Amino acid sequence: MLTIWSGLAVGAIYVLVAIGFNIMFVASDTFNFAQPQYLMLGTFVSYTIVVSLGLPLVVALVVGGVVGFAVGVLEDWIAIRPLSGTGVHGELVTTVGWSVIMQGCVLLLWGSAPHRVPGAGSDSVLTLLGGRLSVNDVVLIALAVGLSFGTHYWFTHSKLGIAGLAASEDRQAAMIRGINVNRLSTGACAVAGALLGSLGAVVGPKTFAVFTLGSILVLKAFVALAVGGFGSFKGALIGGFAVGVVEALVGRYLGTEFANLAVFGVLIGVLLLRPQGLFGQRRERVV
């Protein structure tokens, strides 16, 4: 059971990044490859606030969110908006470039050495269902579940969420109906950045603050989203947990060198049986 809990805790991180991917994808039909870097940036902001400045963890949550929000707005203005609506999906390349810029800036500011990020109750251990896990792991798993259902409810029941769905489905039709698609895109990028930036204070105690964190997470979160289904927040939850558990089980019983192979094997198997993912939907257009 210890291995399962460990896999769920790591999978929760994949879920959080996948939620950030989905917020952008659902609201603006844009896949933002820079999304995991906001989580990486948040871990360094948390380290600076809590360790270097000695301020409470709640301050790190707020500052990480503000920094993520501001960087998200800049990314939309510089890397996404100039190519939105052109039909060439050039933002796939520009968001990769923005990811490299963010990683380079963090490397210049904080260096390449990993930093330990203290968390609330990160040293406390609980025993649940025969397995032991830290309080911080429990918080990670709870956040992954809560945010998955919360964002799903937001996009299916709120006016802004439904407007985002409309803009993603048909940008031109949404504009004709009076929806400001540019503002929605900026808001989605800023909110996703703020969410992951603030969560760096929770993820940091598990991963440490290291400038390569985003590069490590991007592939695993992408696999989680592909398995669950692009655009589905419930799929992001199931896919992220599945990737984490498979990775943990294979790493324990077969060796860590087989973990990545098993994860991508699961991806290939799911895509062969259900190309749109477990909870994804096919998009059809009548011409």
Rank of each mutant, 00 (worst) to 15 (best):
G161E: 13
G161S: 11
A163R: 05
L165K: 15
A166Q: 08
A167D: 06
S168R: 15
E169F: 13
E169L: 09
E169K: 08
E169P: 00
R171S: 08
R171M: 11
R171N: 08
Q172K: 11
A173S: 12
A174G: 13
M175R: 15
M175G: 13
M175C: 15
I176Y: 11
I179M: 14
V181I: 09
V181L: 04
N182T: 14
R183Q: 14
L184I: 15
L184N: 06
T186H: 04
T186K: 09
T186M: 14
A188G: 08
A188P: 00
C189T: 15
A190I: 07
A192H: 02
A192Y: 07
G193A: 11
G193M: 06
A194H: 12
L195G: 04
G197Y: 08
G197L: 04
S198Y: 14
L199E: 03
G200Q: 07
G200P: 04
V202G: 03
V203P: 00
G204R: 03
P205R: 13
T207Q: 10
F208G: 04
A209Q: 04
V210W: 11
V210E: 14
F211T: 12
L213P: 05
L213E: 06
S215Q: 13
L217T: 05
L217C: 03
V218C: 10
L219W: 07
K220P: 00
A221G: 06
F222S: 01
F222Q: 09
L225N: 09
L225D: 10
A226R: 03
V227N: 05
V227W: 01
V227R: 02
V227I: 15
G228C: 07
G229K: 01
F230W: 15
F230Q: 10
G231Y: 03
G231K: 01
S232I: 01
K234I: 14
K234D: 13
G235N: 07
A236R: 03
A236F: 06
L237I: 08
L237N: 08
I238Q: 04
I238R: 08
I238T: 09
G239R: 02
F241H: 03
F241M: 08
F241D: 04
V243F: 00
V246I: 13
A248G: 02
A248L: 06
A248S: 11
L249V: 11
R252I: 01
R252F: 04
Y253G: 00
Y253E: 05
Y253W: 14
L254P: 00
G255Y: 03
G255L: 09
T256I: 03
N260V: 10
N260E: 12
N260Y: 00
V263Q: 00
F264V: 07
G265P: 02
G265H: 05
V266S: 01
V266L: 15
V266D: 04
V266G: 01
L267F: 05
I268L: 15
I268N: 08
I268V: 14
